[in-house]
């Protein structure tokens, strides 16, 4: 299983990579939304999961989610916002734009794994 981790912090990408490796995901990384779209375009198959920061240079995460939702090729990609944006109104905006789940920074490893389990992404690899 492949995920794309989109965050402008290398440290955050590494933390997320370590966590999702525990439930069987390999990962490619991108530092902003546009770089992520470029990376995905070059893959023969799109990732099953995208972990998306909100505040990034070039193209922010909300814009990425909006674009990904409109792309038929990415129809089956699960979108999880992972961001410090934590107002209720922001969560609602992200869900409305098409994010499937929302994890607020700071998060613990357990909480991230729990969220992915809610989406049917579990260590056994059972996919919805």
């Amino acid at each position: 299983m492949l995920a794309i981790i989109i965050d402008d912090s290398r440290a955050m990408r590494l933390i997320l990579r370590r966590i999702i490796a525990k439930i069987g995901f390999d990962a490619v990384e991108a530092g902003d939304g546009q770089a992520a779209l470029d990376t995905i375009a070059e893959l023969t198959e799109p990732p099953q999961l995208a972990l998306v920061d909100w505040n990034m240079p070039v193209m922010n995460g909300l814009e990425f989610v909006t674009r990904a939702r409109k792309d038929p090729r990415l129809r089956d990609m699960t979108l999880v916002m992972v961001t410090t944006e934590s107002e209720q109104s922001q969560i609602v905006r992200a869900l409305a734009a098409g994010a499937h789940e929302y994890v607020i920074k700071p998060f613990t490893e357990d909480s991230m794994i729990d969220k992915l389990a809610l989406l049917g992404l579990t260590p056994t690899g059972a996919n919805p």
């Binding site: 912090s9 440290a11 955050m12 505040n55 990034m56 410090t84 944006e85 934590s86 107002e87 920074k105």
Partner: peptide, 26 residues
């Protein structure tokens, strides 16, 4: 990188406690 992310996390959470309609810089 890590110092930036720490400011981002703390700042984002501070913003959520402020009156609505605020924006966070990089």
């Amino acid at each position: 990188d890590v110092l930036g992310e720490l400011a981002n996390i703390v700042g984002g959470n501070v913003k959520a406690m402020l009156p609505a309609g605020c924006f966070l810089s990089l």
